[in-house]
């Protein structure tokens, strides 16, 4: 559980540290005109959707950290036989990096109000992500064909489970991507989808990081 504990300690330390800062040097019992106070003390200077996404990312981090903790604990038992990860995963990783780059470009285009780059970037990002997901399915098939069944060994089971979990989170992102792209293609202007694009970009970068972490762990064990 050390792995999960470290992650949670970081998250909790951040949260509690931030909250403590709100409480220091305050005399809550003093009545004051709010204009005399620092305006919005304790409000994060961001759209609520962004704060919501960051909170969601913390939850997903906790989920993956716990799965990885389980992975590391289960690995120490005698019956663990590591599986040979298919080379295809390297290609998939490259495609996911491309998706992330495309989203980054899209984000820039949205803030600079460049509708064409925005549309192209968004479509490329979505296509790359779809390719990545198909690539993951192909990797599953390769493993299955080589006899690495889910019930064969806990290492196999964890491989399928973790990749499926990561894929499902990407699919969730694709739903938001789909809605944003539809809005854009049906005539919405760049300004109105800017927030969605920004949120997608952050989420994709995050899931890329998660994948790189997972992939590194799978390769090294």
């Amino acid at each position: 559980m050390t792995f999960a504990l470290v992650f949670l300690a970081i998250i909790m330390a951040t949260v509690i540290g931030w909250l403590l800062r709100q409480s220091l040097n305050t005399q809550p019992w003093d009545a004051k005109d709010p204009l005399e106070n620092q305006p919005g003390r304790g409000v994060i200077n961001a759209d609520p959707a962004k704060v919501g996404l960051i909170a969601f990312i913390a939850v997903v981090t906790s989920l993956f950290a716990l799965f990885l903790s389980a992975y590391l604990m289960r690995m120490q038992l005698g019956d663990w036989r590591p599986l040979a990860e298919p080379d295809l995963l390297w290609l998939n990783t490259a495609i996911l990096v491309l998706a992330s780059v495309a989203f980054q470009v899209t984000r820039g285009a949205a803030s600079r109000d460049q509708p064409l780059t925005l549309k192209v970037g968004l479509v490329v990002g979505g296509v790359c992500t779809t390719l990545f997901l198909l690539g993951q399915l192909a990797a599953w098939q390769q493993l299955h064909a080589s006899g690495y069944f889910m019930t064969g060994n806990p290492a196999n089971a964890f491989f399928y489970l973790l990749t499926a979990l990561h894929g499902l989170h990407l699919l969730g992102g694709m739903w938001v991507w789909g809605r944003t792209t539809m809005r854009l293609l049906t005539g919405a202007d760049a300004q109105s989808v800017r927030l969605s694009v920004e949120l997608c970009t952050v989420y994709w970068h995050y899931l890329l990081l998660v994948w790189i972490g997972l992939f590194a762990l799978l390769l090294s064990t």
Partner: peptide, 24 residues
């Protein structure tokens, strides 16, 4: 719970009215 929880946290952080500091 996660859907509700994200709402509660974000609302408390971001939707407080004027003068409602965390310590109030």
């Amino acid at each position: 719970f996660t859907m509700g929880g994200l709402n509660y946290v974000t609302t408390i952080l971001q939707a407080r009215t004027r003068g409602m500091t965390m310590m109030r």
